[in-house]
């Protein structure tokens, strides 16, 4: 298949379909500028997005195809969330959306409209670490550190879901987060300690 035509087709489609929509919803100023198809297409190729990230409200304009991961890393400079595979296979990019863990590489940014996103940067209160961060430090739950933000976010999710009652449980429900350095035994210990601590996460 010729991908050129496919892309151009998509853009043409957007121009045509959005021109119609523009008549109904776009501002008069924009309709005036509507002689220029490119401008309209560009306008409608970005969508407004309002969400809260780590307690801060954002009003953004993003391309609908942008993943939450790319939004965080490339546009907002929140590079604590890592890209390992970009296909939802390594768990490096795990963040919380409304308190639940998700792979941010498999989630479009627009899907988080009106929601609360928490990344690794949002866990600590200033210098004061989150109990899971403390536990990972105490148990040396990492080596190179690259998968660590995802492991920590996932670990908190795992406990919140009630999936950390035994070490077996933890292994099962943390199996989506790959640590190539193999710090797994320490990761299990860290999570079990937080679970036993019984704090509300």
């Amino acid at each position: 298949m010729d991908t050129t035509n496919k892309n151009e087709g998509r853009r043409d489609f957007l121009k045509k379909s959005t021109a119609l929509a523009a008549l109904t919803i776009a501002s008069p100023a924009l309709i005036k500028a509507g002689d220029n198809d490119e401008k309209i297409a560009a306008y409608f190729e970005k969508v407004p997005l309002e969400l809260e990230i780590n307690g801060q409200a954002y009003k953004l304009s993003v391309e609908p195809r942008v993943t939450l991961l790319d939004l965080l890393r490339e546009q907002l400079g929140l590079t604590g969330t890592k890209k390992g595979c970009d296909h939802g296979q390594c768990g490096c990019c795990t963040v919380h959306v409304d308190g639940k863990r998700i792979n941010s590489c498999l989630s479009l940014a627009v899907m988080s409209h009106g929601k609360k996103v928490t990344t690794i940067e949002g866990l600590a209160k200033g210098e004061e670490l989150h109990p899971m961060q403390e536990a990972f430090m105490k148990h040396d739950g990492f080596q190179c550190g690259y998968c660590t933000p995802g492991q920590i976010m996932s670990a908190i999710g795992c406990i919140r879901e009630g999936h950390a009652n035994t070490a077996e449980d933890v292994r099962e429900y943390m199996s989506g987060n790959i640590c190539r350095c193999g710090a797994y035994p320490n990761i299990v210990d860290a999570i079990m300690e937080v679970k036993k601590g019984g704090k509300q996460l």
């Binding site: 590079t79 604590g80 969330t81 990344t119 690794i120 940067e121 866990l123 600590a124 670490l129 961060q133 403390e134 990972f136 430090m137 040396d140 990492f142 080596q143 550190g145 660590t148 933000p149 920590i152």
Partner: peptide, 12 residues
């Protein structure tokens, strides 16, 4: 402790 521990767990 690993000297990178603090920045590792904070995503820094």
């Amino acid at each position: 402790m690993n000297i990178d521990s603090y920045t590792h767990v904070r995503g820094e």
